[in-house]
Simulated assay, not measured.
Amino acid sequence: MAKRSTFDDKLAALRKLRDQDGPNPGDAASVRKAIGDRSNFVVAAAADVAGAWRLAETAPDLEKAFDRFMVDPVKDDKNCRAKIAAVQALEKLEHERAEVFEKAARHIQPEPVWGGTEDTAPPLRSAAMVSLTRINPTGLSTLLVDALVDPARDVRCTAASCLGAIGSEAAALALRLKAHLGDKEPEVVSEVLRALLTVSAEEYLPFVRGFLNSPVEASAEAAALAMGNARLPQALGPLLERFHVGGSTPLRETILISVAMLRASAALDALLELAADDFEPTAKAALNALKIHKHDPKLVDRLAASLKNASRAVREQFARDFKA
């Protein structure tokens, strides 16, 4: 009688498959069998292989596994491990059936922790919303608008990003309202503003600029990062204007980091000029922003040339951050 595979054996076999460039004859059948396993760890590992290899024939198995782990999720699938892996694999397969994603996007899984419970399903809801945005089923906008008030910050951010990807007038209006209402997490406001710029940079840049010029620095930082993440060359002027208006050191540093994120030649030229500024805090802030480009040898050479007459502290920062 053949020896029965242990839990460790199953995981080791799946890890070995994952390290292959692709399936050999019989491997797809092994993956499908593993997706039917009772262990959420084994199913998650098998789903990872199925997605990596784009095994379309595993889609029905992944759907069944997802439903199986929805029966008693806290007991059978702690941290939504198998369900998240199944949804991610189905996304890699460009699965077109929306049902499993709709279930995942609404799933809440409170698990016991010290002093109460904690929802472990936010990553699952986020992954499902991304897939639904690709499929665009009826009722998607309603689901995403509801998710803008999800208790989990990352889910709210994903909902905003998905609404921006939809790009409809209704989606933009929902984002605009959310921006006005605000959020306890600045990252959410920033993602909402970035999503609006995705819908229409020309139409919504003035709206986002209003937040950039807000006396509330958290709003200004959120808008600056939204502009930087959107990589809009036309955001350079508003960002530099706001920088020169003044503000706290963290705000000014965030603005220059956002300028660096634009990755436009004019933005880099502006930062090089600021790095050579006689006012040491400005020069240091510009150097800090330029660090994201420290692997560009031409830029580093230009920066070194511009700092020949800089203060000792600035030159030491340059040596530490760009020459190490």
Rank of each mutant, 00 (worst) to 15 (best):
D77N: 04
V199Y: 11
A324S: 15
K64C: 07
A218W: 11
E91F: 13
S265C: 06
G228I: 09
L205S: 04
S5C: 13
V43H: 03
V216C: 14
E253W: 08
V42F: 03
G247I: 04
R242T: 09
D150Y: 05
V199H: 07
P233I: 07
E99Q: 10
E57S: 07
A121C: 09
P137D: 02
P297H: 06
F211L: 14
D8W: 10
A230G: 05
S5I: 11
S214W: 03
L55S: 01
K294I: 04
D183R: 00
D277R: 05
A56M: 06
L256M: 05
A222F: 02
R242V: 06
P215S: 15
S306G: 11
R32L: 14
G247K: 05
L173N: 15
T58D: 05
K33L: 14
D8C: 12
F279D: 09
A152L: 09
V74M: 08
L175H: 04
T117V: 14
L143D: 12
C80V: 06
L11R: 09
P23A: 08
E191H: 10
W114S: 15
E217R: 11
Q234V: 11
A222P: 01
A226H: 01
E102W: 06
K103E: 00
M261W: 09
L256C: 04
R209K: 13
A85K: 02
A50C: 04
R194K: 10
K10F: 08
K284S: 15
G36L: 07
A44F: 10
D321G: 12
C157R: 15
P238R: 03
D269F: 07
R68P: 01
E241Q: 13
M227F: 00
W114N: 13
A230R: 10
K3H: 12
K16L: 11
L262K: 04
H244Y: 14
P186K: 04
D277T: 04
A128E: 00
N229W: 08
F279R: 09
P206A: 05
S311N: 12
L271R: 02
D301Q: 10
F318V: 12
S131V: 07
K178D: 10
D9N: 02
D154Y: 12
D183Q: 06
D278F: 14
E202N: 12
N288S: 15
S190V: 00
A56Y: 05
K3D: 15
L240C: 11
G22V: 10
K33S: 14
P60N: 06
L212I: 05
L197W: 01
A235G: 07
